[in-house]
């Protein structure tokens, strides 16, 4: 028994970001994600089909009712594909953040009964949204093949991975931050979807960003990393010119890291007391 690991429990644990512990619990991250996906696909009648259908329907609605307002130059990419690619990226972000907060509340009874790094819950929420995202991308490729097979050749996997990581990081930061808030104030559960809805219109999902910007729009680009995420996705999929400069990109990445750091610190601060408050 001498080789047993020794744990110490004290009032205030040493401060850390908890990355090492997360790594020790990696199997639990996997199993939480797996459960999330399993349950989601079992509960809905159409299962996977529903996940694929949701952004398609959204895309159709935008295409039918809103396309006339956005008379921009979409580099010869059909508008519906342009919107759909943006919607997929948007859905990854929105559902990741929303399910993080909902899952913290829904798993309250597990949190109150068993110890594990609480960050696993938001993390696995994002990962399960990532699975939906991949399914939607598969549908996008079907559309592209249907439209014009040569479109596929433009796909740039490195951009795609980068874009996906940026979106997931932003989604994780927002979800984590609101998870910490919702433990204390339940209202944030309803504030978050509203906030995300607002952000939807400030992100280039239905339109293309214009580069000759005024200050206000500049600020919107810097503080909303989804602009970078969606632009990068489009550059990855359609090989359209990437509209942000390197300097702008770096500033957005720095701001995103700050968001993430604030979220992790806030969450770590609340984490200890989650079981008492939730």
């Amino acid at each position: 028994m001498q080789h047993n690991k020794t744990y110490t429990i004290t009032a205030k644990s040493k401060f850390s970001l908890g990355i090492k512990e997360l790594f020790e619990y990696r199997e639990l991250i996997y199993i939480f994600t797996w459960r999330e996906i399993k349950v989601k696909y079992k509960q809905t009648l159409l299962g996977v089909l529903w996940v694929a259908l949701q952004p398609v329907i959204m895309m159709l609605i935008i295409n039918i009712f809103l396309s006339r307002y956005f008379k921009q130059d979409f580099e010869n990419i059909p508008y519906y594909l342009y919107v759909y690619s943006g919607l997929i990226a948007w859905n990854l972000f929105a559902s990741g953040a929303n399910t993080s907060v909902n899952n913290i509340l829904m798993n309250a009874n597990i949190i109150k009964k068993i110890y594990f790094p609480r960050m696993i819950i938001p993390l696995s929420s994002i990962l399960s949204s990532f699975v939906d995202y991949c399914i939607s991308f598969f549908v996008l490729f079907l559309f592209m093949i249907f439209e014009d097979v040569s479109l596929i050749l433009n796909f740039n996997p490195i951009y795609w991975i980068l874009a996906t990581m940026i979106i997931m990081l932003f989604s994780f930061s927002l979800g984590l931050y609101f998870s910490a808030l919702v433990v204390k104030y339940r209202d944030f559960r309803y504030i978050l979807p509203f906030f995300i809805q607002l952000l939807f219109f400030l992100s280039p999902v239905m339109y293309k960003i214009q580069i000759d910007q005024k200050i206000l729009q500049d600020i919107l680009i810097y503080f909303n990393p989804m602009v970078l995420g969606i632009e990068l996705i489009r550059a990855a999929v359609f090989n359209v010119p990437f509209l942000l400069s390197l300097k702008q990109t770096l500033i957005i990445l720095i701001i995103l890291s700050i968001y993430c750091l604030i979220a992790v610190l806030t969450f770590r601060n609340t984490e200890e007391y989650i079981a008492d408050k939730i």
Partner: peptide, 13 residues
């Protein structure tokens, strides 16, 4: 370890 103590120390081997 579900909730932290306010004071004191526990050692678990």
């Amino acid at each position: 370890r579900i909730t932290p103590p306010t004071k004191g120390k526990i050692t678990l081997r």
